[in-house]
Design a protein around this nucleic acid. Structure first.
Lengths: 163, 163
DNA sequence: TTCAACCTGTTATACTATAACAAAATAAAA
DNA sequence: TTTTATTTTGTTATAGTATAACAGGTTGAA
């Protein structure tokens, strides 16, 4: 596979994928979870995509490689990866994204570009704290947070301005 | 219709519905938008439900009342109401909820109970400001926010504790 | 009244996700 | 090592969510 540079951050995405997979192996080993072939490959394919990947897109890729091509195959793999905290689901897109902080418990907050559909994950303690405080005022016990912000990313803003 | 009291806030929900409908009429009139029969009734049915209502649940209710019962009917009404800011979509539930502040532009932030599936809308300027600031740091121009928090509401927490 | 814009009817289909049960693989116990 | 229990995968079917495309009707303005 050739080196790829992520359009927005300019990092080497291959390194990302590798390190994500290593982390996943470790994490599963520690917790006695099995990162089977299909689960591992699903995670890798999700990471190889710069954008969130839909379940059926993933299914098609897996099918090309000889994996079973019925929906339950991919949804099971996704359920496993979600439960293990290795990926996130972007609810507003019905799509899945590699989690950049799989090694520590965290919530996924996303910036989603309307133009290029790239997604940046960010993690912010101050926002998290505000949300918890807000919920507590209503006597609400917070369990999970879906924070998905859409708009224009830096690159697309520049591209739009130059038209 | 009999008086109903909202399970969580104890308010008279009928008053809510009435005032929501009035606001909707006004808003549409001001903006030269047509609140047609099916749109009006859809909005009313969404308000009559204490919980977010799925598109096909809404479709069934409309069909019972003699409206056309094909999916585009309900999705068109929903699209209109969403665009007018009269309802919100709860992405993590694929369901729709009356907007409590239709008269002023705002983002919908939700507390969703895992047990009873009731949803509370809240509106918080400090969180909004934090999110904008966070996005700006990434040179990201914010357009819309999806904030959906799940957990246990006050009532269900008490019910659970007494088991 | 004629036109243009908008709204609705209708059929078909695409996309997203899960139920239910059978078969195979793996891990642990005997 | 054989048996047993548990987990994972295969397979078929179906449920649930959403839109495309085009025809027909309504509304309001020119």
């Amino acid at each position: 596979m050739s080196e790829e540079h992520h359009p927005h951050t300019g990092h080497n995405h291959n390194d990302c994928i590798e390190s994500a997979l290593e982390t996943a192996e470790q994490l599963c080993a520690e917790q006695g979870q099995r990162l089977t072939k299909v689960r591992r490959r699903a995670l890798e394919l999700i990471w190889e995509s710069h954008r969130p990947l839909g379940a059926y897109q993933l299914l098609a890729k897996l099918a090309e490689e000889g994996f079973n091509s019925a929906p339950p195959t991919v949804y099971r793999a996704l359920d496993f990866l979600l439960a293990a905290g290795l990926i996130h689901k972007v609810e507003s897109m019905n799509a899945f994204l590699g989690c950049v902080h799989a090694d520590k418990a965290h919530k996924g907050y996303f910036l989603i570009c309307d133009e290029c559909h790239n997604v940046m994950e960010f993690d912010y303690q101050d926002i998290h704290a505000s949300l918890i405080a807000r919920a507590a005022e209503q006597d609400f016990e917070l369990r999970s947070e879906t924070i998905e912000l859409t708009g224009l990313c830096s690159a697309c803003k520049k591209a739009g301005a130059s038209l």
